[in-house]
Computed example of a mutant assay.
Amino acid sequence: VVLVVPIDGAAPKGRLILPQQQTIRDIIDAHAVCMVTQPEELPQTLNALAKKPKMVITDSQAFGVVNKMVPQDILLTSFSILFAHYKGNLRLAMQGAAALDTLTDGDTILMAEGCTHHRQCDDIGTVKIPRLIRRYTGKDVQFVWTSGTEFPDSLRPYKMVIHCGGCMLGEREMQYRLKCAEDEGIPITNYGIAIAHMNGILSRSTEFLAHI
Rank of each mutant, 00 (worst) to 15 (best):
P39I: 09
E40P: 11
E41R: 13
L42V: 13
Q44N: 15
Q44I: 15
T45D: 14
T45S: 15
N47H: 10
A48I: 03
A48Y: 01
A48L: 13
L49A: 13
L49E: 11
K51S: 15
K52M: 14
K52I: 07
P53L: 08
K54P: 05
K54V: 14
M55K: 06
V56R: 00
I57M: 12
T58G: 05
S60Q: 02
Q61G: 02
Q61T: 10
A62R: 00
F63V: 10
F63A: 05
V65T: 08
V65C: 11
V66R: 03
V66F: 06
V66D: 02
N67L: 05
N67E: 07
N67H: 09
K68F: 05
V70R: 02
P71E: 06
P71Q: 04
D73S: 01
I74C: 02
L76H: 07
F79Y: 14
S80Q: 08
I81L: 04
L82K: 03
Y86I: 09
Y86K: 15
Y86Q: 14
K87S: 12
K87Q: 12
G88R: 09
G88M: 04
N89K: 08
N89P: 03
N89V: 09
L90F: 06
L90T: 09
L90A: 08
R91M: 11
R91S: 13
L92F: 03
L92R: 09
L92I: 03
A93D: 12
M94L: 07
M94W: 00
Q95M: 09
A98N: 11
A98D: 04
A98S: 12
A98M: 15
D101R: 14
T102E: 06
G106C: 03
D107S: 06
D107R: 10
T108S: 11
I109L: 13
M111F: 00
A112Q: 10
A112I: 00
E113I: 00
G114I: 00
C115S: 03
C115T: 01
C115Q: 04
T116G: 06
T116C: 14
H117W: 02
H117K: 12
R119P: 00
R119C: 07
Q120F: 07
Q120S: 14
C121M: 11
C121W: 00
C121D: 14
D122P: 00
D123G: 01
G125C: 07
K128V: 13
I129R: 09
P130G: 06
R134F: 06
R134V: 08
R135Y: 12
R135G: 05
R135H: 08
Y136N: 05
Y136A: 06
G138Y: 07
G138A: 07
G138Q: 14
D140A: 13
V141I: 10
Q142T: 15
F143W: 01
V144H: 15
V144Y: 05
W145I: 08
T146N: 08
S147W: 01
S147P: 03
G148N: 10
F151N: 13
S154V: 02
S154G: 11
S154K: 15
L155T: 01
L155M: 07
P157G: 10
